[in-house]
């Protein structure tokens, strides 16, 4: 168990460092997928396999792929080194990161972790779904939030269609000549 934890922690942290350090945007994105996979491994260790599967499906399978897709479409593929543009802010970034790290370390150190163990969380998908959809006599706030999130996604999809739609009269371009 401790070996698995050390492996996952190392994978997550080293990949996260790689995201920041690497000079190549594509490398950063790939390191990010490694970091996401490590987090998914943590979810498995915490007896939440459904969360792990969603983590892999959404973050590794969709977010990273779309980011890579975007990088490749917007940059010239012949240019090997995509210089990152944020290097001017490295000292500000360092102080923010150090501050957040110190704050998190403080919070984690004053928390009493005695009563919490990995087995106390929601175990099964069924219980998770019941909580989410408010089927049992739980709080129904999660149902409301769930519905609000789905409406938000619907709005985003419709907005994407509106933004990307060509105005009539610009000619029928079906992308065939690519």
């Amino acid at each position: 168990m401790i070996v698995a934890f050390a492996f996952l922690a190392g994978m997550t942290l080293v990949s996260a460092m790689g995201v920041v350090i690497s000079r190549n945007v594509v490398h950063s994105a790939l390191f990010m997928s490694g970091s996401f996979l490590g987090v998914a491994g943590f979810f498995v260790m915490l007896n939440a396999p459904a969360l792990a599967a969603f983590q892999v499906l959404i973050y590794v399978g969709a977010v990273t792929v779309v980011i890579l897709f975007g990088i490749m479409f917007t940059q010239k593929p012949q240019v090997r080194r995509f210089r990152t543009i944020l290097n001017a802010q490295r000292w500000a970034g360092f102080f923010v990161a150090a501050g957040v790290g110190a704050f998190l370390a403080f919070i984690l150190s004053i928390q009493n972790w005695g009563a919490t163990s990995s087995g106390n969380g929601t175990r099964g998908v069924a219980a998770f779904a019941r909580n989410l959809l408010g089927v049992t006599q739980g709080s129904e706030i999660f149902t409301l939030l769930f519905e609000v999130a789905s409406v938000l996604l619907l709005v985003a999809v419709v907005a994407a269609i509106v933004v990307s739609r060509r105005k009539t009269g610009e000619g029928v371009d079906r992308g065939v000549e690519e």
């Binding site: 396999p49 459904a50 599967a53 969603f54 892999v56 499906l57 590794v60 399978g61 969709a62 792929v65 099964g124 998908v125």
Partner: peptide, 14 residues
């Protein structure tokens, strides 16, 4: 796995 189908979808997306 009790999330077998989800596992299939998630892993093939990699």
């Amino acid at each position: 796995l009790n999330i077998g189908i989800l596992f299939f979808v998630a892993v093939t997306s990699i």
